[in-house]
């Protein structure tokens, strides 16, 4: 009797072992090719990209040489590179500010049962699905010096036309306007999802305590949104710091490079100048900034949660 059970257990254990071996093989058979492709076409460029900044590499067919930190030293000494970093920061900060605040206001207004809610939400989000290469051209047409409606509108209210393309201030304004036009809807949908996930019981409790609308916003709504705030801040910052297409298509870093941003600079370094070393250095600097920001924000979130 005893022997029988041991045999049975042995058989069962053996079967389980072979089953998990089979499972292991099956899993690798399914996921192996995917991982192989990923490692080659997506993983390798990342590793390569994090290292390329330490080389001196100009031209596609030339041989790279090891440059140590020379590219990074140049990056932090050259006012052009530091300028692009600073521009990315303040243009990104402006875009993020408008996206987050207007997006929140929109979500707050929409967070109620009302007619046409889906339609309004869709219209807000619509610009986000349009092609930047096409919609930047619409904005660019608006500020065409002779046939654009921006100057026409100024003329209609009796103001002098503006040479938009020759003013840093106005170019930044239009880049920010375009980026927010395209980005507010996404932020709004995230905020709205957050607002809708708040338990209505909290508001009922606040009503019983006689809280005003503002009090409810500050003491119920905002603390409940910490999760989504972290998400919006991290994705918003990451996206805003990497603004590229609006600069490339609307201002082309002009006038005189004063609206150049870091990602645009990296693109120019590698595609215009084929200076892969400097492009790699710029990319690594952005990566480090994004890492530091994301980790700090997550840390803040965890501290607040406790």
């Amino acid at each position: 009797m005893e022997q029988a059970t041991t045999v049975a257990e042995g058989v069962r254990a053996g079967k389980a072992l072979s089953l998990s071996k089979k499972e292991n093989r099956l899993a690798w058979m399914l996921i192996g090719p995917i991982l192989l492709y990923f490692a080659l076409f997506q993983g390798f460029p990342i590793v390569f990209g994090l290292g390329i900044g330490f080389t001196n590499w100009v031209g596609v067919t030339s041989r790279p040489t090891f440059a140590g930190l020379r590219n990074f030293v140049r990056f932090f000494q050259d006012p052009i590179y530091l300028g692009t970093l600073w521009n990315a920061f303040y243009i990104g900060a402006l875009v993020m500010f408008f996206n987050v605040t207007i997006g929140f206001a929109g979500a707050y207004l929409l967070n109620t049962p009302m007619k046409g809610k889906t339609l309004i939400r869709s219209i807000w989000y619509l610009p986000a699905v349009t092609a930047p290469v096409a919609t930047t051209q619409i904005f660019l047409m608006f500020i065409d010096p002779s046939s654009g409606i921006a100057n026409r509108a100024l003329q209609l209210v009796g103001l002098e036309p503006i040479a938009w393309g020759y003013s840093t201030f106005w170019m930044v304004t239009w880049i920010v306007a375009y980026s927010s036009w395209r980005g507010i809807g996404g932020a709004m949908i995230l905020w709205l999802a957050g607002l809708q996930s708040i338990d209505p019981a909290f508001y009922e409790a606040a009503d019983i305590d006689g809280a005003s609308g503002w009090q409810k916003l500050i003491y119920v709504t905002l603390p409940s949104l910490r999760n989504i705030t972290t998400f919006v801040l991290i994705t918003g910052f990451t996206g805003a710091l990497q603004i590229f297409e609006p600069v490339l298509f609307i201002s082309q870093a002009g006038p005189f490079g004063t609206t150049d941003v870091i990602v645009h600079r990296v693109f120019r370094d590698f595609y215009g100048d084929f200076n892969f070393g400097m492009a790699g250095a710029g990319a690594l600097v952005i990566t480090l900034i994004i890492f530091v920001f994301s980790l700090t924000t997550l840390r803040w979130y965890q501290v607040k949660e406790q």
Partner: peptide, 29 residues
């Protein structure tokens, strides 16, 4: 499915999403 290295691989995959796309611009070219 259970397979060897599952959690480590998934973690690595998730970590690659933190790398901004600009990093791969020049290397991909």
């Amino acid at each position: 499915l259970r397979f060897r290295g599952k959690n480590a691989i998934f973690l690595i995959l998730l970590m690659t999403t933190m790398i901004p796309p600009v990093v791969t611009m020049a290397p991909t070219y």
